[in-house]
Amino acid sequence: MFIGSYAITMDAKGRMAIPAKVRDTLASVCEGRLVVTAHTEERCLLVYPEPQWLDLQPKIEALPNIHRKARRMQRLLLGYATPLELDGNGRVLLPQTLRDYASLEKKLMLIGQGKKLELWSESGWRQELDTGDDDESMPEEMLSLSL
């Protein structure tokens, strides 16, 4: 559903205009209703169409929170989850807590990831592209969970 990358801007109030191509897809998939939350491994935000989030949320809640990584995942994904809706101009207002988490300022990158999008600061995205992978082991339950 969501592919491509888009350079976008955010105003001083935290509003950002969703590109028309993405906005059209969001309108057809979720009538402009989104859930935005923190990424668990990188300092960016995950943007889900509401139906995708509603499918994913029970899986996150069902993770075995006895494991520290699973607990952290739940805290970030559920704790930062914020329902949002596109306004009449195709904009969304990001709460300050989400902007702070991802160090978002004026210049942003919106990155399609299939069923969801990622929202990065422009500098954070460039740094991510230049960073190599680290091979960290994860619990089997997390490997089977597609975020």
Rank of each mutant, 00 (worst) to 15 (best):
A81G: 06
G88K: 03
E85P: 12
V92R: 11
P51K: 00
L104F: 09
D133T: 05
P58R: 08
L77S: 10
A62F: 04
L45E: 10
R99W: 06
S121V: 04
L54G: 05
R99C: 09
E140A: 07
R99S: 07
L145I: 00
H39M: 07
D133F: 00
L56H: 03
P51F: 00
S123E: 15
E105V: 05
E128Y: 11
G132P: 15
L84Y: 08
L119W: 00
L45S: 09
P139W: 00
L129D: 06
R33W: 00
Y48C: 01
G132A: 09
A62C: 06
G132N: 09
T97G: 02
L54Q: 15
W125R: 09
G32N: 05
Q74R: 05
V36H: 02
P58A: 05
A81L: 05
M142V: 00
T82P: 09
Y101I: 08
E42W: 05
Q52W: 01
D130P: 13
M73T: 05
I60L: 14
E85Y: 05
L117K: 07
D55P: 14
Q96S: 09
L93I: 07
E122W: 10
E136V: 10
Q57V: 08
L104Q: 09
L98E: 02
I111L: 12
G88C: 05
G88H: 00
G79R: 00
R71F: 13
L147Y: 06
G88M: 08
P49R: 07
Q96T: 01
S103D: 12
I66L: 12
Q113S: 13
T40K: 13
S123G: 10
M109C: 11
G132Y: 05
